[in-house]
C-alpha cells in the first residue's frame, strides 16, 4: 500500500542523548491549524451584525413612524373624500330635481315657450301639408302643474333667479360675468332686441 501522504518522523526522545526531558520544562503550545484560525470570529463580523440589527431597528422605527404619519394622512383624506362625496351627492340631487319634467315645463313656460300638441307635417315627396297649421296655443300654458312634485317646493324658476348667479357658477367661478356676458351674447344678439340685455331672448310668438 503506498500513498502520497507526507510523513513526519517522530523524534524518539529516549534515543536522544544528553537531553533530559524531565529537567527542561516542556514547552508545549497548541497551534491551531490555519483552517481553524480562519474560522475564528473576527470583530468585523460582530460589528456588521450589530450594525445590521441597528439598521433594522431604525428602519422599523422609521417605517412605523411613517405608517402612523400616513394614518393621519389617510384619515384626513378619507374625511375629505366623505365630504366631497356628500357634496357630489347633494349637487346631483339638485340637478336631478331641476331636470324633472315639472321643473322643465315650468321653466320653459316662464321663459315664454309654449308647447304645441298640434303637429303639422310637410310631406317631401309631393309637398303636401298634413294637418291644419295653426299657431300653438300652448296646451300646458296657463295651467298650473297638475302633477305635483314636493321636491320642487321653494326652488325658484330661472326667471326668478338673481341675474348672473346661475351663469357665474358655470363659467368657472369668474365673477366677471357681468362683463363677460355681453361678449358671449354679442355673436347672437345682432338680431335680438336690445331691451333685455341680461335675459334670454324671449320670442313673442302668439
Amino acid at each position: 500500500m503506498s500513498d502520497n501522504l507526507a510523513r513526519v518522523l517522530r523524534p524518539t526522545w529516549e534515543s536522544t542523548p544528553g537531553h533530559a526531558p524531565a529537567e527542561e520544562p516542556r514547552h508545549i503550545e497548541i497551534v491551531s491549524p490555519r483552517s481553524q484560525r480562519r474560522a475564528r470570529p473576527k470583530i468585523a463580523y460582530a460589528l456588521s451584525a450589530v450594525t445590521g440589527v441597528a439598521v433594522i431597528v431604525i428602519a422599523q422605527l422609521l417605517l412605523s413612524v411613517g405608517i402612523s404619519q400616513s394614518a393621519y394622512e389617510v384619515s384626513r383624506l378619507q374625511a375629505s373624500q366623505v365630504e366631497l362625496g356628500r357634496t357630489a351627492e347633494s349637487v346631483t340631487e339638485d340637478l336631478v330635481r331641476v331636470s324633472s319634467p315639472q321643473s322643465l315645463a315650468a321653466n320653459a313656460e316662464a321663459l315664454g315657450m309654449v308647447s304645441s300638441s298640434n303637429p303639422v307635417y310637410l310631406r317631401l315627396s309631393d309637398g303636401a301639408v298634413l294637418g291644419a297649421p295653426a299657431s300653438a296655443i300652448g296646451s300646458q300654458a296657463g295651467s298650473a302643474s297638475l302633477v305635483p312634485n314636493a321636491l320642487l317646493a321653494g326652488v325658484p324658476l330661472v326667471t326668478e333667479l338673481p341675474q348672473n348667479t346661475g351663469q357665474g357658477a358655470s363659467l368657472g367661478g369668474s365673477v366677471a360675468s357681468p362683463a363677460a356676458e355681453p361678449v358671449v351674447a354679442a355673436s347672437v344678439s345682432a338680431t335680438v332686441p336690445a331691451e333685455a340685455p341680461n335675459a334670454l331672448p324671449t320670442p313673442t310668438t302668439r
Binding site: S100, V147, P148, A150, L151, L152
Partner: peptide, 8 residues
C-alpha cells in the same frame, strides 16, 4: 328614498 320626478 327620494322621487326626483314627484308624482310622475
Amino acid at each position: 328614498r327620494v322621487y326626483p320626478d314627484g308624482a310622475v
